[in-house]
Design a protein around this nucleic acid. Structure first.
Lengths: 339, 339
DNA sequence: CTGAAAGCGCTAACAG
DNA sequence: CTGTTAGCGCTTTCAG
């Protein structure tokens, strides 16, 4: 029966070396003679010793823990991103502590405080907004943070998003090219920069073509609210095309259109989404959408965060990754549309 | 500008008390005079002090970190469970460190070792199998573990699942009552107890009715493999009903049946799933399925784990939670079927 | 390269 | 109730 909890001291005793020798053997950047390493490894294995990373963190000041704050997981984009994020960080020798937070700013703030208590080396805030005082706090404490899939006005804050304005434009151009004239928009949560940017790009492109938004509803990024907004929007003078702020809602909009209102897609109405989550490609939906390149967004997020951890003086980066329009069958395809 | 990292010592100095007094004020079970508490709180606020929970963990031996090991997040059941798990634990004052692991046992093992390095107070293994040596290791180290949505033969291992055998039976009874005669089954990953139990219950109930399985395919819990299995199964002498080991695959099966094979559901073939994830209720699928009560499963999991943490002598619990059949439209409804 | 010694930030007896 | 004194398990100078 192995001991309850083996310390470096016990290993040292068995190996006949000092405790600090043991420490060195298990510290990446340290040096020890081949013989010592051998003896220590041997003793460690025999005892089943593994360093206590918490104690290490206390003295070294590096916990190698990354705090991840995330709001909702029912939008498929997040589980996907979360999985990649965790894997990538794991590969780089970091570990993820996860915190759920609703979008209420106060909640996010208190949650980040708890996170700081764990001496996290960095924070990834996925799709949540946080107060500037809280951000300020992270900065003075010296914990870097990057916003994932959300941006804030503060230019000192690093963030990674897709190019939402450009994405919104692409949606408009596609609908316009398809000959649509009555174009509606179903918005996400108004507090989100992603929502605002997508809409801004969309409306701007419409305007440049001399078309004004035919109808607007708010779905708040919530499926049921998107359904209600759809019902309202189609009650009278319905649009012939709808751009929905994300796929999660777009799916709900399609269901409502087809199964509650008996409309054909895209014969009666075209639907466009944003994200390209897995379900968008399922034949039952076959949703035309703007892809958010989750893998690249994750890679970039991790890059920014780790380089800031390794070099606190690094300048903040605000990355916007361009995502392509994925043409499927939920929206009329303009004649001669080139891939 | 607040200091970089404030220690209890600095607070003590400012408040004019000893360092241990500060500790006491911030330790739940400790006592201090009203005056001391007041002074300390005041000084702490002024300095922006918060206790370093890592240091606390080192000395107290309690990290209040729970390690969560999870394999895949693309099956919607897991994000849902993960969200609840995290929230519940958060409310109870614990925090979740998340580890992704593929189903390869070696991978799971190494990941659990890393987890142990963080001195986690407990482990939740969601849908992964781990070697008995690793489990043994957790036990000697004194870290309780509970299996979520998976069980193992070892009776000393706590686990929480739905009643998969009963669920399998319910599926069979419903199909039988619907008058189906050629009944197929699409299996999940054979290494999973959930898969085995669902199939066992299903086949047993069929057998008792004198019906034998018409066809069997393996989908491995992976959507694409379920599609291929479906194609194979329907190539010749197709069944008139299929029970699929989980919703994730059932969705894929439905897509294949309708869009690749041009079959009507349930007119040509009935489909039954297992889990009742969110998408099952979407009108585009409207999948009849056995519900896994995620909320109750999570509550039970947390209960078992925390009681084992608080009282290490607690006996292991193996809970199987009964889940109802949710009748929707993907399978023929037997005449006079009562809810 | 190696051991001794100091110390990370905090909790937990222990006297007073 | 409070301050003093030991540590927790580990990293990191500092001599040798």
């Amino acid at each position: 029966m192995a001991a309850q909890k083996v310390t470096s001291m016990e290993v040292a005793r068995l190996a006949g070396v000092s405790q600090s020798a043991v420490s060195r053997v298990f510290t990446p950047g340290a040096s020890a003679s081949k013989k010592t390493i051998e003896k220590v490894r041997q003793a460690a294995k025999q005892l089943g010793y593994r360093p206590n990373v918490l104690a290490r963190a206390v003295v070294s000041g590096k916990s190698r823990i990354i705090g991840l704050v995330v709001a909702y997981l029912n939008n498929q984009f997040y589980p996907e991103a979360l999985e990649r994020l965790t894997n990538t960080l794991q590969e780089r020798g970091y570990h993820v502590m996860i915190f759920m937070a609703s979008n209420q700013a106060e909640n996010v703030d208190s949650v980040v405080e708890e996170l700081l208590d764990f001496q996290v080396d960095g924070i990834i805030a996925a799709s949540v907004a946080l107060s500037s005082t809280l951000y300020e706090r992270c900065r003075t404490v010296g914990v870097p943070m990057v916003l994932f899939n959300r941006a804030q006005d503060d230019l000192t804050m690093s963030s990674v998003t897709s190019d939402n304005v450009a994405g919104g434009r692409k949606a408009a151009e596609f609908l316009l090219a398809g000959g649509h004239e009555k174009i509606g928009y179903i918005a996400g949560w108004e507090g989100a920069s992603t929502q605002r940017d997508r809409e801004a790009g969309f409306v701007a492109a419409l305007q440049e073509a001399g078309v004004k938004l035919h109808a607007r509803g708010a779905g708040n990024f919530i499926a049921e609210q998107a359904r209600e907004a759809t019902l309202r929007m189609f009650a009278s003078d319905p649009p012939d095309a709808v751009f929905v702020a994300n796929d999660h809602m777009a799916i709900s909009v399609m269901d409502t259109l087809r199964f509650e209102l008996g409309l054909q897609i895209p014969a009666d109405v075209s639907v466009l989404g944003y994200d390209d989550v897995a379900v968008a490609s399922w034949p039952a939906y076959n949703l035309t959408t703007i892809r958010q390149p989750a893998n690249r967004m994750v890679a970039e997020t991790v890059d920014i965060l780790l380089s800031k951890i390794e070099n606190p003086a690094a300048a903040p980066r605000r990355t916007e990754i361009d995502g392509p329009l994925i043409v499927r069958g939920s929206a009329r395809i303009p004649e001669g549309w080139k891939t």
